[in-house]
Amino acid sequence: MSDITASPANPPGHETSWGVKILGWVCVLFGAVILAGGVWLIFLGGSWYYGLAGLGLAATGVLLNRYMMEAIWLYLVVWIGTVVWAWWEVGADWWAEVPRLVAPTVILILVLLCIPALRRHPSKL
């Protein structure tokens, strides 16, 4: 999915992978929203999960935008942390797991789909 729009005029490995870029910006955007709300929630005495997860998601987005493979590892950490936290909060209450696990898992799949593109791209530091 990642490089169908790559321009043949560019040298290999240097074309823009729009899939990665879009996902990167989506992660930045949603990560920032969750981070902001999460910080607010922390100040209100609530759960720290959203602040941390928002930060992780935004950082994943930044890394994706730079075609860095670390994005995958970072998001895996975020996702595994999410699963552990969700299980700790509500266990096997599957309706309660819907908001906790569905969207993060969709993001996880999309992030994993970026692996081929990230392999081809040199990282932009």
Binding site: W40, L41, G46, S47, Y50, A96, V98, A103
Partner: peptide, 22 residues
């Protein structure tokens, strides 16, 4: 409790948690 807040995504769930705490 705060953990009883819901939504379809973490974002609407988060908004409800904020409302709960406020």
């Amino acid at each position: 409790e705060e953990k009883d807040m819901w939504g379809f995504t973490p974002i609407d769930q988060l908004w409800c948690r904020i409302q709960f705490r406020r």
